[in-house]
Amino acid sequence: MGWLTGALAWLADGAHWQGADGVPQRLLEHVGLSAAAVGIGCLVALPLGLWLGHVRRGGAFAVATGNLARAVPTFAVLVLLALAPSPFGLGTTSTLTALVLFAVPPLLTNAYVGVLEVDPAAVDAARGMGLTSSQVLRRVELPLAVPLVMNGVRLAAVQVVATATIAALVAGGGLGRIIVEGFGRQDQAQLLAGAFLVLALALAVEGGMELLQRRVDPLRRARGRQRVAADAHLDVRSGSS
């Protein structure tokens, strides 16, 4: 178990928690970039997904996006953008673009399915009460789709945190940098310490998003446990990193 004590000793060393390549700085880079990517992804994908679900069109498009994202290696996209001409190339723009690209499919698919699966009787009743098309979307379909929309946000966040780790192999900062530098120096203690930090962040994001998912569901008390969201977990998961 020498490797474990080595990693713990690395983490306990105060020198590794300071400066431009210290753990707090790397964590900040990782979280900042991931949050920006999920935020931009939401702005792009959620309106589109909700609208496609509302007009009940583009199902094949949403599904194809998800399937294609699963087949495209995140690492390859990161490298392709890093070698691409300006405004891409080695730098934050490329990393952020790649992260947004992989955040979009789970957001899009879940938002689409979320609206699509709203009970048609509820929509009919709303129409019968004289609500306009956009009112139906905002006041009926959107609240009912929240569990799946949030499921998409959670999947996107987990996906983006994992991809941001791989970005360190290419050019990016973040906690993955600690792992990659550990490999470069053949310093097993450092690369394992980095891996533990990445693992802790990923689990914290997953846990935090699950909490958020439960908190923001407007109907959670009325409905009890969200079986739909839990079961849809894997079916609409896409991308792999």
């Binding site: 945190v161 394992l192 533990f196 990923a202 689990l203 977990h233 792999s240 990193s241």
Partner: peptide, 17 residues
């Protein structure tokens, strides 16, 4: 299901020892 949360770069590193 929890395994999918672990980023691949971290998983491969953790298997290294």
């Amino acid at each position: 299901t929890a395994l999918y949360t672990v980023p691949s770069l971290a998983l491969f590193s953790l298997l290294l020892p």
